[in-house]
C-alpha cells in the first residue's frame, strides 16, 4: 500500500532529514515510527502528505508515485490520508459536530451523509453526547478524540498520527491508543510517530526506528528499543 524506495530529503540549508529510506507498509498494518527529535519522523509524514517532495527516491501510495501528482491532484491523495496532530488543530469557534462535519463539507458530501455519518463517528470515539460542545469545554483527551473523529470521518484507508498522545496524560493517552487500535481493527492502516516508550512497548506492533535520517531497526511486534 505504501512503498518508499531510496527516499532522501535534503533541505536547502544542507540538512539531510532522511537518507535512503526503504520501507514497505501493507494494508491494515499498524506501524510505529520512533526515534529522537530530529530523526526525520516529521519529515517522513510531510513527504507522505505531499506537503514536501523527496529530493530523490520514490514514494508509492496505492500504486501511485506521489511525486508525479499534479498540484490539483494532491487533495485527492490527502483524502486517502486521515491525519491527527499533537496539537489537535480544532476550530475553536465551531462545535464538535461542526468540526467533524467540516471535513465532510470539504469533500462535498451531501447534507444527508453528513447528518448520518458524523454522529456515528462521534459515538465511535465516545463523544456521542458532546456533539454540541465547543473545543474549549473539552479536556485534552476529548479534543484529541474529536480530531480523531475528523480524521476518520471520510473513511480514509490510511491514518497518520503525529505524536497523538504528546500533549496528554498517560491515562488519556491509553484511551487514544485503544481507539487507534480499534480503528486499525476496522481495516485502516495506521502510521504513528511517537516518543512514548511505554505505549510502543505495550502495543507490540511493528516498530520502525529512525536515527539521523536512517532506518536503524524495523521489527515486527517490537519494542521501543532506544535509550532516551
Amino acid at each position: 500500500m505504501i512503498i518508499l524506495n531510496g527516499v532522501t530529503k535534503k533541505y536547502p540549508s544542507g540538512t539531510i532529514a532522511l537518507n535512503g529510506i526503504n520501507i514497505e507498509i501493507h494494508k491494515g498494518e499498524f506501524v510505529f515510527f520512533v526515534g529522537p527529535s530530529g530523526a526525520g519522523k516529521s519529515t517522513l509524514i510531510k513527504l507522505l502528505m505531499r506537503e514536501q517532495v523527496a529530493t530523490s527516491g520514490t514514494i508509492m501510495i496505492d500504486g501511485i508515485d506521489i511525486a508525479t501528482l499534479k498540484r490539483r491532484q494532491i487533495p485527492h491523495l490527502r483524502r486517502k490520508l486521515g491525519v491527527v496532530f499533537q496539537d489537535f488543530r480544532l476550530l475553536n469557534n465551531k462545535t464538535v459536530f461542526e468540526n467533524v462535519a467540516f471535513a465532510m463539507q470539504i469533500v462535498e458530501s451531501s447534507k444527508r451523509e453528513i447528518v448520518r455519518q458524523v454522529p456515528r463517528v462521534l459515538s465511535l470515539v465516545g463523544l456521542g453526547d458532546k456533539a454540541g460542545a465547543y473545543p474549549a469545554q473539552l479536556s485534552g483527551g476529548e479534543q484529541q478524540r474529536v480530531s480523531l473523529a475528523r480524521a476518520i470521518v471520510n473513511n480514509p484507508p490510511i491514518l497518520i498520527a503525529d505524536e497523538p498522545t504528546g500533549n496528554l496524560d498517560p491515562d488519556t493517552a491509553w484511551e487514544i491508543m485503544k481507539l487507534l487500535k480499534e480503528i486499525n481493527h476496522r481495516g485502516t492502516t495506521v502510521i504513528m510517530a511517537t516518543h512514548a516508550r511505554d505505549i510502543v512497548n505495550y502495543m507490540r506492533q511493528r516498530v520502525v526506528t529512525l536515527e539521523k535520517g536512517r532506518i536503524t531497526r524495523d521489527q515486527e511486534r517490537g519494542g521501543y528499543g532506544l535509550e532516551d
Binding site: P75, H76, R78, L81, V83, R89, F102, V107, R150
Partner: peptide, 14 residues
C-alpha cells in the same frame, strides 16, 4: 489561517 491549514490536510481543493 488555521482553518485553511486544516482544509489543506483534509484534502480541500485549491
Amino acid at each position: 489561517r488555521k482553518e485553511i491549514n486544516i482544509m489543506k490536510f483534509v484534502g480541500a481543493t485549491d
